[in-house]
Design a protein around this nucleic acid. Structure first.
Length: 330
DNA sequence: AATGATGCCAACCGCTCCTCA
DNA sequence: ATGAGGAGCGGTTGGCATCAT
């Protein structure tokens, strides 16, 4: 079995830049046969002159079924704003709340649209905006002493817990715990309307054979995934006084395609995205540990890597949030 | 119509995390 | 306990598209 080309290795001719339809077909064919994962084998097995990382990225950000493209809806926008306020620039975690969007898409959308919008809003009608809103990013840590950083983290954890607690409370008028000065967005708690993939959101394949290649691959469940209807297997987990209804994510996907791509993009639109891959590590740490241990010690590796769905109390759009199971006890 | 400025986004890079031997 | 290698994440970049002048 050949070694996969590293992304930077003089001895390998690694192709970079935009992917061609032919490369996409090769990658999709591989995933169809083997499932996503084991990316290091992909270049050797497919003959692609790409590094494994590039293959994974292309799949997760572009070719993976279930990705919605096109404009973000108002609801999605509000969710991103709330989640960014809550989680910081943890795009993967934010993306897990928007199953049809990739972290890259959300990150780009934030950087190109929302950041400006937020700045404008925070400046407000009175123009009292005093600078960049502090974000709980890891990079900000480097400018603080350890003590400062730990205190800041403790505060962040407390705020995050409170916000999540609020978010999970059905009766709470402001479920994401958004500060009042951002009440322009507090209607997030209204039930989210399901956004069916409209023709405008669907991108045609410029290579229809990809659609044929993909047809049915998601219908075949992967070995590790249970096939069942969404929400039929509901559990309850508790941690630090917070508890959640959870249900095993369904895995009943179909792939569909439509015409009208403005670019060489393929829209793969299953009813459900692939299972799992929640990346709410930080959130999980906040939930699983008390403040002191969260600050002083890293979280023990989690034994169970299964994925759960959180039953969020405010509408369909938020109800299917991936959440990595914290324990084996369910 | 030509040209420069700006916006957008797919892809890359470098780092950290995770797993496993 | 530890180190190596793979996977994943967030920041950044490069190039194309669109807009403004």
């Amino acid at each position: 079995m050949g070694r996969s080309p590293p992304c930077s290795d003089e001895n390998w001719v690694v192709k970079k830049g935009p992917w061609t339809p032919e490369e996409d077909i090769a990658l999709v064919s591989y995933v169809q046969q083997h499932g996503p994962g084991n990316w290091r084998f992909v270049p050797a097995k497919t003959g692609l002159l790409r590094c494994s990382k590039s293959c994974r990225l292309r799949w997760t950000n572009y070719l993976r079924p279930g990705i919605k493209r096109g404009n973000f809806t108002d609801q999605e926008e509000k969710m991103i704003i709330h989640l960014q306020a809550l989680l910081g620039n943890r795009w993967a975690a934010i993306a897990s709340y928007l199953p049809e969007r990739t972290d890259n898409d959300i990150k780009n959308y934030w950087n190109t649209h929302l950041r400006k919008k937020i700045r404008k809003l925070e400046a407000g009608p009175y123009g009292n905006y005093s600078g960049e809103r502090p974000e709980p990013t890891s990079t900000s840590r480097s400018n603080m002493s350890r003590g400062q950083w730990e205190r800041r983290l403790q505060t962040d954890i407390g705020m995050a817990k409170q916000a999540l607690s609020d978010a999970l409370s059905v009766d709470h008028p402001n479920p994401m715990g958004v500060p009042n000065n951002r009440n322009a967005f507090t209607d997030i708690h209204k039930p989210l309307q399901h956004q069916p993939s409209s023709a405008a959101n669907c991108y045609a394949s410029s290579a229809h054979n990809i659609s044929r290649l993909l047809e049915g691959w998601m219908k075949k469940p992967l070995e590790t995934v249970k096939v069942e209807e969404a929400g039929t297997n509901t559990n309850r987990i508790s941690s630090n006084g917070l508890s959640y209804n959870t249900s095993v994510q369904s895995y009943n996907s179909e792939v569909s395609y439509s015409e009208g791509s403005p670019k060489n993009e393929y829209d793969l639109t299953p009813e459900r995205r692939e299972n799992g891959k929640s990346s709410l590590r930080t959130l999980e740490k906040w939930l699983l540990l008390d403040e002191e241990s969260a600050v002083m010690a890293p979280l023990e590796p989690q034994g169970n890597r299964g994925s759960l769905m959180m039953d969020m109390p405010f509408g369909e759009g938020l109800s299917n949030c991936a959440y990595r199971a914290p324990t084996n006890n369910y």
